[in-house]
């Protein structure tokens, strides 16, 4: 299970933030914000190349304790999910479906 999920707006401001442990929220906010660096870079690279069809960005950061995944809608709304590194049961596909659910919930 993910430990933290966030929706970040086009201007990179947080729109929604939730994590399982409220005490850790600040830390997660920092982490999510840091991962936006990678998102921005990936979007820049994608802009230069072909059009973006794949919304799922894959793993953004693989830290000692956590893995951070990203997903960007066509309107540049970013979804970020943080999972624990120890949670090896979590497969790429599940993360994808989690994002898709999040996306449809928001829509």
């Amino acid at each position: 299970m993910a430990v933290c999920a966030a929706i970040v707006g086009k201007d990179n401001s947080p729109k929604y933030f939730a994590c399982t442990n409220p005490d850790e929220e600040l830390n997660f906010q920092y982490k999510v914000l840091s991962s936006l660096d990678v998102v921005e870079e990936k979007l820049n690279a994608a802009n230069k190349g072909s059009d973006m069809r794949e919304l799922y960005l894959g793993i953004l950061y693989s830290l000692e304790t956590h893995k951070i995944y990203g997903y960007v809608t066509n309107t540049k709304i970013k979804f970020i999910i943080v999972a624990e590194s120890t949670n090896t049961a979590l497969r790429d596909n599940e993360i994808r479906s989690m994002f898709r659910k999040l996306h449809s919930l928001r829509a």
């Binding site: 201007d11 990179n12 401001s13 947080p14 929220e25 600040l26 906010q29 920092y30 914000l33």
Partner: peptide, 13 residues
Amino acid sequence: DYRLECWWSILSH
């Protein structure tokens, strides 16, 4: 920059 991107709880901290 935190202010610019509206991360208020980080900013508050």
